[in-house]
Amino acid sequence: MQTFFQTLTTGLSDGAIFGSLALALVLIYKATEVINFAQGEMAMFTTYIAWALMGHGSTFHWWAFFATLGIAFGGGALLQQTVIRPLERASVLTAVMATIALLVILNGLAAWIWSPQLQFFPSPFPTSSWVVGGVHISKQDVGTFGVVMACVLVLWLFFRFTKLGLAMRAGALNPDAARLMGVRTSWLLALGWGFAAALGAVSGMMVAPTVFLTPNMMQAILIYAFAAAVLGGLESPVGAVVGGLGLGVLLNMLGQYVHPVTSELRLPVALGLLLVVLLIRPAGLFGRVVVRRV
């Protein structure tokens, strides 16, 4: 029983990371139908910036955390305006290719600026545990989960209760109609990229203490995030977060209780599962089936 709860908390903490990156993917996908393959590298790159701000990773500073969110936000918005916006009239595939180019560029740039070596990234949370009824609950896990979920909550409040958030939702649903109401959709798309980049930065800074900082740090995580987003239906922000949490828990449970599932098998198992779900429910767990007229 103790192992079960420990595995559960670690699973939720991993899952929060997958879920927040998945949410970032969904935000951009809903607004523009573009799958942003650079989402993981954007997160990695901003995590390096945080690392640099924290005196090359000597101690964690919350001010650096928030400064990084701001930088990520600005960088995401800037990328949208300079790279994605000019491709607005091209096909979606062109924009997707552009994000793949960004992936490669950011990866190379990070290795060039900061070297490809493993770096230590400090954690804001102590490595100790709370012991509740014989169960060891890692403060690191709880902290990670808490920070990520707090960010998701803030974002949800923004979309649900502010005029700007409403306009972003309306613009995603029907951009032409939104423009007729005076909505400057192009700016709102930049804002959306900014939010997605900031969310990615959160996941990057939260995962870096456990996986070490390298230019390739986010690549496997991005695949888990894709899986989570698709599981959730790709259109559903709630689905992305739930998908991420579910995937995190599941992977940790499999690793704990099913013996052949070693760390090498985690990714194949996750994607195998994704295939099974999609074969049964093509629209994902939270998605709507899109009926196309032929």
């Binding site: 409403l166 309306a170 649903l173 109609a177 007729l180 909505v183």
Partner: peptide, 15 residues
């Protein structure tokens, strides 16, 4: 040009 997925009130706020 109604936002079909939004509520009536949200549509009005968009106006």
């Amino acid at each position: 040009g109604i936002f079909a997925e939004l509520t009536v009130w949200e549509n009005l706020r968009m106006g």
